[in-house]
Simulated assay, not measured.
Amino acid sequence: MSHSHGSHDHGTANYNRAFIIGITLNLALVVFQAISGVLAHSLALLTDAGHNLSDVLGLLLAWGANLLASRPPTQRFTYGLRRTSILAALANAIFLLVAVGAIAWEALQRFHEPAQVSGGVVIGVAIVGILVNTGTALLFLSGRKQDLNIRGAFLHLASDAIVSLGVVLAGIVIVVTGWNWIDPVVSLVISGVIIFGTWELLLDSVKLALDAVPEGLEPLAVRTYLTELPGVTQIHDLHIWGMSTSETALTVHLVIPGNHPGDDFLCRVSKELHDQFGIEHATIQVEQGDPNHPCGLEAEDKV
């Protein structure tokens, strides 16, 4: 078996500073929103505070996974701890959905027992939320397309800014009309926004945890490329999966009758897999197709 891999880019850029800033600002915002929400009797503010707290925990998870994923392999963990980034994204998505369920239930209870809400306080605090969430979301803007963890952080913070805008609008309506029932309505809308923004993250995380081909990579295109390589008469046992939220791995058997194509061929194929498809880690087994020694993994349904 021959093994080769392209130039590795383990994860995205170093986001330690972005994580520290984001966690600090959002934690301060959570305390500010929670105190203001209690004083103003605003469930919308408490909802936003709860969501921002989940974002803080999510940022901590993503940051921890980002640090663990950069650790080198060991004899026991031969791929290192890259997969922690997938587990962190999955845990983050599940936690958010559970939190949303609790928030939505509380909002429904408020319809039966509406509370007096201080609209002015709601507006002021929510404006602060818009500024904090927009600023911290921009810290993760550049890496959102390369890493599911970074994308999750960006989407949550960006959605928080939109949610805070909704809270501002609710506060304005309460000040103008005195309709306190707008507060739980906004809470339910906020819950819907969170579910909408989190659902894709949950699905992508589950798929990666189940070794699915990462989103944005077309397996048929990879198969076609490998099949059309010079001298290749057949390919089998092709597997493509995410080693982490930012790295893709591939294993494949190439049937090349005659002599072994050499290391130059393997290096070229690995580089092209990296450049064309973003596959960081390619393991290629070359076979000559001897019918007297068939490969046990040749059948398409064999794993």
Rank of each mutant, 00 (worst) to 15 (best):
45 L>T: 03
24 T>K: 07
164 S>Y: 12
15 Y>A: 11
59 L>H: 08
152 G>C: 01
95 F>V: 11
140 F>Y: 08
52 N>D: 09
68 L>G: 11
255 V>R: 11
300 E>N: 09
121 V>C: 01
152 G>T: 04
40 A>Q: 06
234 Q>A: 11
189 V>E: 03
120 G>N: 13
253 H>P: 08
116 Q>D: 15
288 Q>S: 15
160 D>A: 09
226 L>T: 10
150 I>D: 02
193 V>F: 13
55 D>N: 11
55 D>R: 09
165 L>S: 15
171 G>Q: 03
5 H>C: 12
209 A>H: 00
103 I>H: 10
131 L>F: 05
130 I>F: 12
243 M>V: 12
238 L>C: 07
225 Y>N: 06
1 M>F: 06
15 Y>N: 12
295 C>H: 06
14 N>E: 01
277 F>M: 11
11 G>P: 03
12 T>S: 08
130 I>R: 13
116 Q>L: 04
75 Q>L: 05
35 I>C: 06
64 G>T: 03
73 P>M: 11
284 I>E: 11
152 G>E: 02
56 V>P: 14
109 Q>G: 02
47 T>S: 14
60 L>A: 15
26 N>M: 13
157 L>C: 03
28 A>E: 07
290 D>R: 07
285 Q>L: 00
284 I>V: 14
57 L>Q: 00
102 A>K: 04
120 G>M: 13
184 P>H: 08
93 A>M: 07
7 S>M: 06
145 K>S: 04
31 V>H: 03
126 A>V: 01
147 D>H: 07
220 L>R: 02
160 D>L: 09
251 T>D: 10
6 G>M: 10
120 G>T: 09
125 V>N: 08
148 L>D: 03
221 A>S: 14
157 L>F: 05
274 H>K: 15
177 T>G: 03
179 W>H: 11
207 K>Q: 14
68 L>R: 04
241 W>N: 02
63 W>F: 10
121 V>T: 10
110 R>M: 00
158 A>Q: 07
43 L>G: 12
144 R>F: 01
244 S>D: 07
269 V>I: 11
